[in-house]
Design a protein around this nucleic acid. Structure first.
Length: 588
RNA sequence: GCCCCUGUAGCUCAAUGGAUAGAGCACCGGACUUCUAAUCCGAUGGUUGUGGGUUCGAGUCCCCCCAGGGGCGCCA
């Protein structure tokens, strides 16, 4: 928006520089940071400094910048599309024509509606792998972060013009699964989960750990069972298949509730064989050293690269007994993704920060082995969700908050408020609204935080719906709906307002116009926090407007203009909430 | 020992290298006869961990420290 006008001004400034024999610099434009105004701004400090350097002048840069800004402002006069040009403290500020800007921004939003902010097709295919839950374990609040972060990144990347494949990688085999099967076979044979599947699965896993802790001599039964799995004993395989399916059904339910979908499932258990093949290939290529049976199969990455410092360390890719490690399987998975989608421009892994070294090792190994796509793999690291006192959530330690419990609690609390404020809604509608609010409230704090910062979970703040939180944004959305409904379906034409806009109106339009830029930035930096903060900012500006500017009870031309502003706000809130995976409710 | 992350208001967190470092929570004082008060307005609150450097300009970039967290050969 206003690109043409900006370029015109830029050309004028370049002309001025040539005329005055000033160095030519790329101008950096920012937004005028003062509230109640809108327009673009550029500083003259860089130009002043470059000029001083070039001419060997020793002088006060801010002073020169101020004079430069002043003479350029004089030179420019009043370019088309702007209503004021101002030089102050070394900055050149160009204020947009209010009615022109209003008209352009609002028309664009209303015209594009659901696609407002959607960027041009980038013709790139990106895979986002996220969630990676372990079957036969509980699904707790810690797991929520990867699921939500990955889902939101996928939404943002899609909106930013990428084609996205969402993939999941459940951990459906490993020691935890064998322990679970052992416990089930001995103490729960014949039982089946009913509701809260992942909860029930988690209970048995936890029981297995307790029993083994109390009676360590039973470990040998677990080892025997693991051997039976390795030999593909039909009884074990069948039981594994059946119980694994229970867990997966539990996950599907959870994703359904959270509004998360996947295009592609890769399973840990399917990567075992191809992983071992890659390890053999690495041994054949003399990249990996086979120290079996005394030692494992290892790769001395630093040595291969000739690094003096320890950076990639030693990477263990196969156990000394020949069984697969997580690392073995991750080598296969990386390759499998590019076998399936050779045109992937990026393969992203949304996995917690503790595995940073692991992924560096995986990607670097594939690079050494000569796979050309290795540079397109990238780990998107995020910090953990801990309990107060920096206590890590762990199924084995029993220090977990179950996702089912949290969702139930949040939804119930939201339901009570809906019940109180909207008693006339049907019960289905109340429940639907409560879910939108409760789940939104859980998602938001995980997104409105830097990926690299730890989230501390406590019940009180998780269930606090006030302040900077999803319900605040949803409430602003509901308010826009009320106004439009009360206007009675009035048709509003494109309009250039002919009255002095209030500060609240200018700021609101300014924020609306920023949306596409926020999408771009959020996508290139893989940071949903940009959108989370943006959505809040937008809602806040609307609430300011709501408090100060009556829409329905004003003269008709103001009413028409404001009604359009409300419509555009509503659309932009809706679009930004959609990127966060948060439902915009009709009533609250 | 090596590597990564974090350090900003009492607490939780923001801030494309730019103008006066901003929100929420908490606390205190106000605003529903109005388009939904899950809202709004006001007040209080800062040596951006320390010390250097780069730059016209540093919370932001670089270096040394300090503090906390995480990772480093057969866990996932």
């Amino acid at each position: 928006m206003f690109e043409e006008e900006r370029i015109q001004v830029e050309n004028l400034i370049k002309k001025y520089c040539k005329k005055e024999n000033l160095p030519e610099l790329q101008l950096q434009w920012t937004w005028i940071p003062f509230s109640g105004h809108w327009g673009i701004s550029t500083s003259m400090f860089a130009l002043a400094a470059a000029n001083a350097r070039q001419k060997q002048l020793k002088s006060n840069i801010p002073e020169i910048a101020t004079r430069l800004a002043e003479s350029i402002a004089d030179y420019l006069g009043l370019p088309v599309g702007f209503e004021k040009v101002e030089a102050t403290k070394g900055y050149l500020n160009l204020y947009f024509s209010q009615s022109e800007y209003f008209h352009q921004v609002i028309d664009l939003v209303i015209r594009d509606s659901k696609t407002y902010g959607h960027l041009e097709n980038k013709n790139e295919l990106v895979m986002v792998e996220f969630s990676q839950p372990n079957t036969h374990k509980a699904f707790h609040v810690g797991h929520l972060r990867s699921a939500i972060l990955g889902d939101t990144l996928a939404r943002i990347l899609e909106f930013a013009g990428y084609e996205v494949i969402r993939s999941n990688y459940p951990g459906d085999m490993g020691l935890h699964v064998i322990k679970w099967l052992w416990c089930y076979l001995n103490f729960h044979l014949g039982e089946k989960p009913e509701q809260d599947i992942t909860h029930w699965m988690g209970e048995i896993y936890s029981e297995a750990n307790d029993r083994l802790y109390e009676n360590p001599e039973l470990e040998k039964e677990v080892r025997i069972l693991y051997k039976r799995w390795d030999d593909r004993d039909p009884e074990v395989v069948n039981l594994w298949e059946e119980t694994r399916e229970w867990s997966l059904q539990g996950f599907y339910q959870m994703y359904e509730t959270l509004g998360i979908r996947f295009d592609r499932y890769y399973f840990n258990s399917q990567m075992e064989k191809p992983g071992k093949e890659i390890v053999q290939e690495l041994i054949d290529k003399k990249i990996a050293i086979d120290e079996r049976p005394e030692g494992a199969v290892i790769i001395k990455i630093d040595e291969i690269l000739g690094l003096n410092k320890e950076k990639y360390r030693v990477f263990v890719v196969l156990r000394s007994d020949g069984t697969a490690l997580y690392a073995t399987e991750d080598l296969a998975l990386a390759k499998k993704k590019f076998d399936d989608y050779p045109q992937l421009s990026r393969s992203l892994y949304v996995v917690d920060v503790r595995q940073s070294l692991h992924f560096q090792q995986v990607f670097k190994t594939m690079e050494i082995a000569g796979y050309p796509w290795s540079g397109r793999c990238q780990h998107i690291a995020y910090e953990l969700v801990n309990l107060p006192g920096n206590v890590v959530m762990s199924s084995r330690e029993g220090t977990i908050v179950l996702l089912e419990d949290l969702i139930r609690e949040a939804t119930q609390r939201a339901y009570q408020v809906v019940q109180q404020k909207n008693p006339d809604l049907s019960d289905d509608k109340k429940m639907e609204t409560a879910k939108a609010i409760g789940i939104g409230a859980l998602k938001y704090p995980m997104l409105a935080r830097e990926n690299t910062k730890i989230v501390t979970f406590d019940w009180e703040s998780a269930l606090d719906f006030n302040g900077q939180a999803a319900p605040y944004i949803q409430y602003a959305y509901v308010r826009t709906g009320s106004i439009i409904r009360k206007a009675g379906g009035e048709i509003t034409q494109s309009i250039k307002p002919e009255y002095e806009l209030t500060a609240q109106e200018t700021e609101l339009i300014d924020v609306i116009s920023r949306f596409p830029r926020e999408v771009e930035r959020s996508a290139t930096e893989f940071r949903p926090i940009q959108i989370a903060n943006y959505a809040y900012d937008l809602a806040k500006k609307f609430n300011d407007f709501y408090a100060q500017c009556p829409v329905l009870q004003v003269e008709s031309h103001i009413r028409s203009a404001r009604l359009r502003l409300v419509m555009a706000t509503r659309q932009t809130i809706e679009n930004s909430l959609a990127l966060l995976g948060i439902t915009a409710p009709e009533a609250m």
